[in-house]
Design a binder for these strands. Structure first.
Lengths: 119, 119
DNA sequence: ATAATAGTAAACCATATGGTTTACTATATC
DNA sequence: GATATAGTAAACCATATGGTTTACTATTAT
Protein backbone atom coordinates (compact mmCIF):
# COMPACT_ATOMS: atom_id res chain seq x y z
CA UNK A 1 0.00 0.00 0.00
CA UNK A 2 1.06 3.60 -0.44
CA UNK A 3 4.78 4.18 -0.78
CA UNK A 4 6.36 0.78 -0.89
CA UNK A 5 9.68 2.15 0.32
CA UNK A 6 10.59 3.27 3.82
CA UNK A 7 7.99 5.41 5.56
CA UNK A 8 9.72 8.78 5.58
CA UNK A 9 12.88 8.11 3.69
CA UNK A 10 12.24 10.44 0.80
CA UNK A 11 13.44 14.02 0.84
CA UNK A 12 9.85 15.02 0.47
CA UNK A 13 8.90 13.03 3.55
CA UNK A 14 11.80 14.51 5.47
CA UNK A 15 10.57 17.99 4.63
CA UNK A 16 7.09 17.06 5.80
CA UNK A 17 8.55 15.83 9.07
CA UNK A 18 10.38 19.09 9.68
CA UNK A 19 7.51 21.28 8.57
CA UNK A 20 4.75 19.56 10.52
CA UNK A 21 6.90 19.31 13.61
CA UNK A 22 7.74 22.99 13.28
CA UNK A 23 4.04 23.81 13.06
CA UNK A 24 3.27 21.75 16.14
CA UNK A 25 4.42 24.50 18.48
CA UNK A 26 2.24 27.53 19.24
CA UNK A 27 5.18 29.90 19.62
CA UNK A 28 6.37 29.02 16.15
CA UNK A 29 2.90 29.41 14.66
CA UNK A 30 2.76 32.86 16.25
CA UNK A 31 6.12 33.71 14.78
CA UNK A 32 4.89 32.71 11.34
CA UNK A 33 1.73 34.75 11.80
CA UNK A 34 3.84 37.76 12.73
CA UNK A 35 6.09 37.25 9.73
CA UNK A 36 3.07 36.99 7.47
CA UNK A 37 2.74 40.74 8.02
CA UNK A 38 6.27 41.40 6.86
CA UNK A 39 9.92 40.71 7.75
CA UNK A 40 11.27 41.47 11.19
CA UNK A 41 14.49 41.22 13.16
CA UNK A 42 14.98 38.66 15.90
CA UNK A 43 14.63 41.03 18.87
CA UNK A 44 11.45 42.43 17.34
CA UNK A 45 10.07 38.91 16.92
CA UNK A 46 10.98 37.96 20.47
CA UNK A 47 9.43 40.99 22.16
CA UNK A 48 5.80 39.72 22.46
CA UNK A 49 6.86 36.47 24.06
CA UNK A 50 7.34 35.83 27.75
CA UNK A 51 10.48 33.89 26.98
CA UNK A 52 14.21 34.48 26.78
CA UNK A 53 15.83 35.65 23.56
CA UNK A 54 17.81 32.42 23.12
CA UNK A 55 14.59 30.45 23.38
CA UNK A 56 13.04 32.43 20.55
CA UNK A 57 16.29 32.09 18.65
CA UNK A 58 15.97 28.34 18.84
CA UNK A 59 12.41 28.44 17.55
CA UNK A 60 13.57 30.56 14.64
CA UNK A 61 16.30 28.07 13.91
CA UNK A 62 13.75 25.28 13.76
CA UNK A 63 11.57 27.31 11.41
CA UNK A 64 14.63 28.04 9.29
CA UNK A 65 15.62 24.35 9.13
CA UNK A 66 12.09 23.54 8.03
CA UNK A 67 12.49 26.11 5.24
CA UNK A 68 9.65 28.21 6.61
CA UNK A 69 11.69 31.36 7.10
CA UNK A 70 14.78 32.87 5.52
CA UNK A 71 17.32 35.00 7.31
CA UNK A 72 19.46 37.82 5.95
CA UNK A 73 22.19 39.18 8.18
CA UNK A 74 23.20 42.81 7.81
CA UNK A 75 25.49 44.10 10.49
CA UNK A 76 24.39 42.68 13.79
CA UNK A 77 20.76 42.52 12.70
CA UNK A 78 19.23 39.26 11.52
CA UNK A 79 16.23 40.00 9.37
CA UNK A 80 13.72 37.13 9.11
CA UNK A 81 11.19 36.71 6.36
CA UNK A 82 8.44 34.22 5.72
CA UNK A 83 9.28 31.54 3.17
CA UNK A 84 5.90 29.96 2.63
CA UNK A 85 6.57 27.26 0.06
CA UNK A 86 6.85 24.46 2.65
CA UNK A 87 3.42 25.51 3.89
CA UNK A 88 2.18 24.85 0.40
CA UNK A 89 3.78 21.41 0.47
CA UNK A 90 2.10 20.67 3.77
CA UNK A 91 -1.19 22.00 2.44
CA UNK A 92 -0.94 19.75 -0.57
CA UNK A 93 -0.37 16.74 1.64
CA UNK A 94 -3.45 17.64 3.66
CA UNK A 95 -5.44 18.27 0.49
CA UNK A 96 -5.28 14.58 -0.33
CA UNK A 97 -7.68 14.13 2.57
CA UNK A 98 -10.06 16.91 1.58
CA UNK A 99 -12.31 14.24 0.09
CA UNK A 100 -12.93 12.90 3.56
CA UNK A 101 -13.73 16.23 5.19
CA UNK A 102 -17.31 16.37 4.02
CA UNK A 103 -18.71 13.11 5.16
CA UNK A 104 -21.11 13.02 2.23
CA UNK A 105 -20.30 9.48 1.24
CA UNK A 106 -21.37 9.65 -2.34
CA UNK A 107 -20.25 7.60 -5.29
CA UNK A 108 -17.31 9.89 -5.98
CA UNK A 109 -16.07 9.08 -2.52
CA UNK A 110 -16.50 5.43 -3.31
CA UNK A 111 -14.29 5.88 -6.36
CA UNK A 112 -11.69 7.71 -4.35
CA UNK A 113 -11.64 5.01 -1.73
CA UNK A 114 -10.41 2.59 -4.37
CA UNK A 115 -7.64 4.99 -5.29
CA UNK A 116 -4.35 5.31 -3.49
CA UNK A 117 -3.52 8.06 -1.09
CA UNK A 118 0.25 8.13 -1.18
CA UNK A 119 2.74 9.27 1.40
CA UNK B 1 -0.62 41.68 16.67
CA UNK B 2 -2.40 38.39 16.27
CA UNK B 3 -3.96 36.78 19.28
CA UNK B 4 -3.26 39.01 22.23
CA UNK B 5 -3.69 36.13 24.68
CA UNK B 6 -1.26 33.32 25.39
CA UNK B 7 0.28 31.71 22.32
CA UNK B 8 -1.37 28.30 22.35
CA UNK B 9 -3.73 28.60 25.24
CA UNK B 10 -6.95 28.17 23.31
CA UNK B 11 -8.55 24.77 22.86
CA UNK B 12 -8.22 25.34 19.16
CA UNK B 13 -4.51 25.95 19.51
CA UNK B 14 -4.14 22.86 21.66
CA UNK B 15 -5.79 20.80 18.95
CA UNK B 16 -3.43 22.27 16.37
CA UNK B 17 -0.48 21.33 18.56
CA UNK B 18 -1.62 17.74 18.83
CA UNK B 19 -2.58 17.43 15.18
CA UNK B 20 0.54 18.97 13.68
CA UNK B 21 2.79 17.05 16.04
CA UNK B 22 0.94 13.86 15.13
CA UNK B 23 1.48 14.60 11.44
CA UNK B 24 5.18 15.23 12.00
CA UNK B 25 5.98 11.52 12.06
CA UNK B 26 6.19 9.45 8.85
CA UNK B 27 4.85 6.28 10.47
CA UNK B 28 1.74 8.13 11.56
CA UNK B 29 1.26 9.70 8.13
CA UNK B 30 1.50 6.21 6.65
CA UNK B 31 -1.07 4.96 9.12
CA UNK B 32 -3.44 7.74 8.11
CA UNK B 33 -2.87 6.97 4.44
CA UNK B 34 -3.69 3.34 5.11
CA UNK B 35 -6.83 4.28 7.03
CA UNK B 36 -7.92 6.56 4.21
CA UNK B 37 -8.65 3.36 2.32
CA UNK B 38 -10.90 2.05 5.05
CA UNK B 39 -10.91 0.93 8.70
CA UNK B 40 -8.49 -1.69 9.93
CA UNK B 41 -7.56 -3.50 13.12
CA UNK B 42 -4.34 -2.78 14.98
CA UNK B 43 -2.45 -5.93 13.93
CA UNK B 44 -3.39 -5.26 10.33
CA UNK B 45 -2.15 -1.70 10.59
CA UNK B 46 1.10 -2.80 12.19
CA UNK B 47 2.00 -5.48 9.65
CA UNK B 48 3.72 -3.31 6.99
CA UNK B 49 6.00 -1.70 9.56
CA UNK B 50 9.39 -2.96 10.65
CA UNK B 51 8.48 -2.14 14.21
CA UNK B 52 7.03 -3.87 17.26
CA UNK B 53 3.30 -3.99 17.85
CA UNK B 54 3.52 -1.84 21.00
CA UNK B 55 5.36 0.82 19.01
CA UNK B 56 2.56 0.99 16.45
CA UNK B 57 0.08 0.95 19.31
CA UNK B 58 1.68 4.09 20.69
CA UNK B 59 1.49 5.83 17.35
CA UNK B 60 -2.17 4.94 17.13
CA UNK B 61 -2.72 6.34 20.59
CA UNK B 62 -1.12 9.61 19.53
CA UNK B 63 -3.33 9.77 16.45
CA UNK B 64 -6.32 9.01 18.63
CA UNK B 65 -5.44 11.77 21.12
CA UNK B 66 -5.15 14.18 18.22
CA UNK B 67 -8.67 13.16 17.17
CA UNK B 68 -7.39 11.83 13.86
CA UNK B 69 -8.67 8.29 14.34
CA UNK B 70 -11.47 6.66 16.25
CA UNK B 71 -11.34 3.21 17.77
CA UNK B 72 -14.15 0.74 18.28
CA UNK B 73 -13.43 -2.34 20.35
CA UNK B 74 -15.33 -5.53 19.62
CA UNK B 75 -14.04 -8.56 21.39
CA UNK B 76 -10.30 -8.49 21.35
CA UNK B 77 -10.18 -6.59 18.08
CA UNK B 78 -9.64 -2.85 18.03
CA UNK B 79 -10.97 -1.43 14.80
CA UNK B 80 -9.48 1.92 13.81
CA UNK B 81 -11.08 4.39 11.45
CA UNK B 82 -9.98 7.71 10.02
CA UNK B 83 -11.55 10.74 11.71
CA UNK B 84 -10.52 13.49 9.31
CA UNK B 85 -12.03 16.60 10.86
CA UNK B 86 -8.81 17.67 12.60
CA UNK B 87 -7.12 17.48 9.20
CA UNK B 88 -9.65 19.99 8.04
CA UNK B 89 -8.82 22.24 10.98
CA UNK B 90 -5.14 21.99 10.15
CA UNK B 91 -5.87 22.66 6.49
CA UNK B 92 -7.83 25.74 7.41
CA UNK B 93 -4.96 27.05 9.45
CA UNK B 94 -2.63 26.52 6.51
CA UNK B 95 -5.13 28.09 4.14
CA UNK B 96 -4.57 31.44 5.81
CA UNK B 97 -1.16 31.39 4.17
CA UNK B 98 -2.37 30.37 0.72
CA UNK B 99 -2.13 34.01 -0.26
CA UNK B 100 1.64 33.82 0.12
CA UNK B 101 2.11 30.64 -1.89
CA UNK B 102 1.97 32.27 -5.28
CA UNK B 103 4.56 34.98 -5.06
CA UNK B 104 2.60 37.23 -7.39
CA UNK B 105 2.79 40.28 -5.19
CA UNK B 106 -0.18 42.12 -6.52
CA UNK B 107 -2.30 44.76 -4.89
CA UNK B 108 -4.54 42.17 -3.31
CA UNK B 109 -1.52 40.80 -1.54
CA UNK B 110 -0.72 44.32 -0.39
CA UNK B 111 -4.18 44.53 1.13
CA UNK B 112 -3.81 41.18 2.81
CA UNK B 113 -0.48 42.16 4.29
CA UNK B 114 -2.28 44.90 6.22
CA UNK B 115 -4.73 42.36 7.52
CA UNK B 116 -4.21 40.15 10.53
CA UNK B 117 -3.32 36.52 10.28
CA UNK B 118 -4.43 35.17 13.62
CA UNK B 119 -3.30 32.16 15.57
C1' DA C 1 38.17 53.72 23.92
C1' DT C 2 33.99 52.56 26.26
C1' DA C 3 29.64 51.08 26.47
C1' DA C 4 25.41 49.42 24.67
C1' DT C 5 22.93 46.39 21.40
C1' DA C 6 21.88 42.12 18.49
C1' DG C 7 22.39 37.80 18.52
C1' DT C 8 24.54 33.12 18.95
C1' DA C 9 26.92 29.37 21.71
C1' DA C 10 27.23 26.38 25.32
C1' DA C 11 26.06 24.05 29.43
C1' DC C 12 22.41 22.53 31.89
C1' DC C 13 17.67 20.73 33.20
C1' DA C 14 13.04 18.64 32.90
C1' DT C 15 10.02 16.42 30.14
C1' DA C 16 8.54 14.31 25.69
C1' DT C 17 9.35 10.99 21.69
C1' DG C 18 10.09 6.80 19.68
C1' DG C 19 11.64 2.62 20.20
C1' DT C 20 12.63 -1.89 22.75
C1' DT C 21 11.44 -6.16 25.74
C1' DT C 22 8.79 -8.50 29.14
C1' DA C 23 4.58 -9.15 31.37
C1' DC C 24 -0.13 -9.12 31.54
C1' DT C 25 -5.42 -9.22 30.27
C1' DA C 26 -8.96 -10.64 27.63
C1' DT C 27 -11.06 -13.03 23.93
C1' DA C 28 -11.23 -16.84 20.76
C1' DT C 29 -10.27 -21.57 19.33
C1' DC C 30 -9.18 -26.59 19.79
C1' DG D 1 -9.18 -26.73 30.19
C1' DA D 2 -5.33 -25.60 27.33
C1' DT D 3 -3.50 -22.78 23.91
C1' DA D 4 -3.25 -19.24 20.62
C1' DT D 5 -4.40 -14.46 19.33
C1' DA D 6 -5.22 -9.24 19.89
C1' DG D 7 -3.78 -5.85 22.22
C1' DT D 8 -2.33 -2.91 26.22
C1' DA D 9 0.75 -1.92 30.33
C1' DA D 10 4.96 -1.16 32.31
C1' DA D 11 9.78 -0.63 32.72
C1' DC D 12 13.54 0.83 30.37
C1' DC D 13 16.69 3.42 27.09
C1' DA D 14 18.50 6.94 23.87
C1' DT D 15 17.68 11.03 21.83
C1' DA D 16 14.89 15.26 20.95
C1' DT D 17 12.31 19.46 22.69
C1' DG D 18 11.76 23.54 25.00
C1' DG D 19 13.25 26.21 28.29
C1' DT D 20 16.82 28.45 31.43
C1' DT D 21 21.34 31.11 32.59
C1' DT D 22 25.91 32.48 31.64
C1' DA D 23 29.33 33.57 28.42
C1' DC D 24 30.81 35.15 24.24
C1' DT D 25 31.21 37.67 19.44
C1' DA D 26 30.32 41.27 16.60
C1' DT D 27 28.48 45.52 15.42
C1' DT D 28 26.92 50.21 16.53
C1' DA D 29 26.92 54.41 19.17
C1' DT D 30 28.85 57.84 22.56
Amino acid sequence: MLSSSQPGASKHGQNLNLVFRALGDPTRRELLARLSKGPAMVTELARPFDMSLPAVGKHLRILENAGLIRRTVSGRVHQCALSPLPLKTAGEWLAKYTQFWDETFNSLNEYIRDDNVRE
